[in-house]
Write a protein that binds this DNA or RNA. Structure first.
Length: 655
RNA sequence: GGGCGCGUAGCUCAAUCGGAUAGAGCACCGGAUUUCUAAUCCGGGGGUUGCAGGUUCAAUUCCUGCCGCGCCUACCA
């Protein structure tokens, strides 16, 4: 609604400027006034025009206001301050549309979007860093879907990398486990936790002597090769850990459609197909001397090629070279990534084979890449737009892939390739100490310490969730002894998930989260449960009053009576915030920043809580005013539930 | 050395391509008719937005230079 009116206003202003001054501005800036008394939209337009028109801003603003006339949905325009033009909407018009849940028709965007997130190495339990990735990714998926986009959710599995090799080495050479023993362990519920420790031990063991490291390299080669016992054990381990990751993420209502694996990228020869094209197009060049002698290299992203017009042809300064194919002929991960991304855009000319892998309790089927494949499978890849949720440390690699696509002439694909970059989750030194890790003096003085799977240093996702559930369960137990234990468990889980998801979303993407248990375990203040509680309060009003909030009819209400005068500003602010939800969702998608929606939810909940205190509804003597207040609660409740659903948070029945 | 990012209240963070008096939460202090359940609400203190210049009617935001911090910068994935 808010967005719809803004568009209408922009259009009107454009027409006016064209007709009156014959001016075409590239962009009409529309802001939100600092206070609701000033109206709903503010235009600093007059300041911009002052120079062009050689008139005082204030005078221009007055002229614009006088000449603008009327506009549907708007009450009036006025001049404020040194030359702001403030627009006031017709409050009753907006409220009525909102109460009736009228959605302005939006043009459907065609083309499928591919969002890839999580991508946890299948060699150990997921930790809080992975949670940030998965929650950001899943929320972005929900944002896109709520805007009507068709989305494929992928989780890339690097099942042939060194991390997997390390656990395999750990099991076979350090723990001396047989295949049968590993199979038995893999059946155990917390196999990923077991691997967590094995991985950390193996990493330490490498430091002991050089032979151990040789074993690692040999194991890695066997895994990459495939078709041998080592590869088979690696597959066994990585698949079992992968299942655990899916279970962990499912606890947070995070699901995937397809799991492409690196093993298939190798076995189905994606790279060979890409290599040919990369050589033909000159993206890759062969180095015949220098430190990268014998390698196929490409220009490192960000080392501008435009400026060095002096170097002729395809010469790339040594420090700007990124090795794609090693001198022994093997391809590095960036190369595989280029091939994989050509597949995503349908540019490779090859496809995976697919088989069913995991069925969610709700019946949703998750597919996985495979060598053989099932005959009937959904169509993946070949999309119009992609988003890769990958942390900021990999931005250079991501940019290299984008440059490769560009070099191949696929500019459109490159333009629709978004590295959805975010910063890592680290631990506060205090938190690290709580976990029993001893830190160096240097680390203690830092604001945060990076987690390290290699050192087994971090907070496991399931542990954190268990802690949150236990803490929420305590509260629910004491507040609602009348409920069954199952019901209380269920509510506690919803609260825990709400707290965790909100926590990961409240920070903007490029701020490092210094994780601290006290903050993450809080259910008060700016948290998910705060917003959930606001919904519960709204529901309670209807429950106690004997009404159904979802069937509440606003037909008879005279909104202008209750919203028009300035004494109604407080309630109007709440209506306005509710009207902004879809606008905020649009902002989140445009900027790839889910934090805006989290903040919006909190603000809406905050305004509602104030309203809740100020205006007792059920005791309201004036029946028509009571209906109006009920309509207010119904609309806010509906918008909050919707917005919470978009960030993947459910509102419990009671709290 | 080069690339990317960050520096805002005691702490953790916001501030929508530059806009009106820089906002929240936590912590601290003081309050809220035992009510639609207080996981809430109201009030209070707390800021030279790292420093110095520049551009602009307007700078936390853009530009330049410093200072400080983080990440990336392997023929590892």
């Amino acid at each position: 609604m808010y967005r719809h009116l803004e568009r209408r206003l922009t259009q009107k202003i454009r027409e006016f400027l064209q007709q009156t001054y014959s001016i075409e501005l590239p962009r009409i800036v529309i802001e939100q006034p600092p206070k609701v008394e000033f109206g709903e939209y503010a235009l600093p337009l007059a300041f911009e025009l002052a120079k062009k028109l050689r008139k005082a801003p204030r005078k221009i603003a007055e002229d614009v206001v006088a000449g603008l006339g009327t506009l549907e949905g708007f009450e009036k325009f006025e001049v404020a301050g040194a030359g702001y033009i403030n627009a006031r909407v017709d409050r009753a018009y907006v409220a009525k549309a909102l109460a009736n849940d009228e959605k302005p028709t939006t043009e459907a965007v065609s083309g499928k979007v591919l969002v890839e997130h999580s991508s946890i190495n299948p060699n150990k339990a997921a930790h809080i860093g992975h949670l940030r990735n998965a929650i950001l990714g899943d929320t972005f998926v929900r944002l896109l879907k709520s805007a009507g986009r068709a989305v494929d959710v992928q989780n890339y599995i690097d099942n042939t990398g060194v991390q997997v090799a390390d656990v395999v080495v750990g099991f076979l050479h350090l723990e001396k486990k047989s295949r049968v023993e590993i199979e038995q362990l893999a059946e155990r519920p917390q196999f990923d936790y077991f691997c967590w420790d094995v991985y950390a031990r193996a990493s330490q063991w490498y430091e002991q002597n050089a032979d151990n490291k040789k074993l690692r390299l040999q194991t890695l080669h066997e895994i990459e090769q495939g078709g041998n016992e080592t590869a088979s054990i690696a597959e066994l381990i990585s698949t079992a850990v992968l299942r655990r990751h899916l279970e962990t993420m499912d606890r947070l209502d995070i699901e995937y459609d397809f799991l492409p694996r690196e093993s298939e990228i190798l076995h189905l020869h994606f790279w060979e197909a890409a290599f040919t094209k990369l050589k033909e197009s000159g993206v890759l060049t062969f180095e015949s001397e220098g430190k990268n002698k014998g390698c196929w290299v490409m220009r490192r992203a960000g080392t501008a090629s435009a400026k060095d017009s002096t170097t002729e042809g395809t010469e790339i300064a040594e420090e700007d070279q990124k090795v794609i194919v090693r001198s022994n002929g093997t391809v590095g991960y960036v190369g595989k990534d280029i091939a994989y991304h050509m597949w995503k855009f349908g540019l490779l000319g090859r496809d995976f084979n697919y088989e069913k892998f995991y069925r969610y309790p709700n019946g949703h089927e998750c597919w996985i890449s495979s060598d053989k494949g099932a005959p009937d499978h959904p169509h993946f890849g070949d999309v119009a737009e992609i988003y890769n949720v990958i942390d900021a440390r990999q931005s250079e690699a991501q940019n290299t892939v984008i440059e490769a696509l560009r070099g191949l002439g696929h500019n459109e694909a490159a333009d629709h390739y978004t590295h959805f970059s975010y910063e890592m989750v680290a631990l506060t030194p205090c938190c690290a100490a709580e976990l029993g890790y001893t830190l160096s003096e240097e680390d203690k003085s830092r604001a945060y310490v990076e987690v390290s799977g290699r050192k087994g240093f971090g907070v496991k996702a399931d542990d954190l969730l268990d802690k949150l559930i236990a803490s929420a369960k305590n509260e629910v137990d004491s507040r609602h002894p009348e409920l069954s234990d199952d019901e209380r468990k269920n509510i506690a889980t919803q609260i825990a998930v709400g707290a965790l998801r909100y926590f990961m979303l409240k920070f903007t993407k490029n701020s490092v989260i210094a994780f601290d248990f006290k903050e993450a375990l809080s259910f008060e203040g700016e948290t998910g449960p705060y917003a959930q509680y606001a919904v519960v309060r709204a529901s309670n009003i209807f429950r106690k009053g004997g009404f159904d909030p979802d069937k509440f009819s606003a037909g008879e209400i005279d909104f202008s009576k209750y919203l028009s005068d300035s004494s109604a500003n407080e309630i109007w602010e709440l209506w306005l915030a509710a009207a902004k939800t879809s606008y905020v969702i649009g902002q989140c998608i445009a900027t790839s920043e889910p934090a805006y929606l989290a903040k919006h939810i909190f603000q809406l909940a905050q305004l509602f809580n104030t309203f809740y205190h100020r205006f007792p509804i059920l005791t309201e003597a004036n029946e028509s005013r009571k209906q109006f207040l009920l309509a207010t609660a119904a609309v806010v409740r509906r918008e909050l539930i919707h917005a919470l659903q978009v960030i993947g948070v459910q509102a419990p029945a009671v709290m």
